[in-house]
Amino acid sequence: MASHFHQPERIEEALRFKQELGEAAYFLAGGTEVNNSKSKAAQAEHLIWLGKLGLGGIKRREGGVSIGAMTTLQEMLESELLHPAIHQAARNHANRNIRNVATIGGHLATCRSCADVIPVLLALRAWLRVATLSGELERDIERWLLGERDGIVLSVEVPDPPADLRVALECHTRTANDVSLITAGVSLRNEQGCMRDLIVAAGGVAASVVRLHEVEAALEGKPLPSREEVESLVAGQVNPIADIRGSADFKRHLAATLVERALRKAWNR
């Protein structure tokens, strides 16, 4: 259990604590990960609580919506400012008790392979505002997922989607109250019978949520091919690991099925 609980009131202060304390310190947001008895962070000596930095709240901005990092997933689910697909993703996240404390910042930083809300953020071309000691910057979520995860997430910026953008999500859980095993999130526009601006994201198939660029490239500008074609295309692009929740084959099959379903749903919308 931690023995120090820091409550910085300025971002720089928080960053500096982290810089000084290094591995021994964790940022603390909602705490569903950090305070979890099963997590590594539960052993950390120092906690830097982000609750006094004013990072909560969802705001309308020019050309989009800004979700403060300390916003809980339940608040996102209840916010009328957010895209319905974000509501759906948030609803897939665990359960009410967890959603009431888990924050979007913590969700991004935890960066689970199957993080439920990340695919929709990719599908909506959201980006992050991140504070580092060298200043505030904008970060592409994909780069964040690929490992550029230093600093404090200040907010998630979701641009207003084009009016004809179609978004669809799928997920597979064992029971209703479960972390997803495989997720899929897609967005596209149908331009005269062809798919445009396609984004295909999947969770549970790699260390973190990934965009399936090859699948996107293969389908961009085309009408949606047959189910079998899409499925084998996706299956060829994902390499999930086997674990107690399922064999690699099963997960690959699920990923192919769910991505195909999401694409078809978006296509037919």
Binding site: A2, F5, Q7, L28, G30, G31, T32, N35, N36, S37, L47, W49, G51, Q74, N95, R96, N97, I98, N100, V101
Partner: peptide, 22 residues
Amino acid sequence: CGSCAVLLDGRLVNTCLLLVGQ
């Protein structure tokens, strides 16, 4: 399990996942 839940500012939370400072 949710057995430890109470309302925090009117919302249901698991107290086992929270620290007093929060």
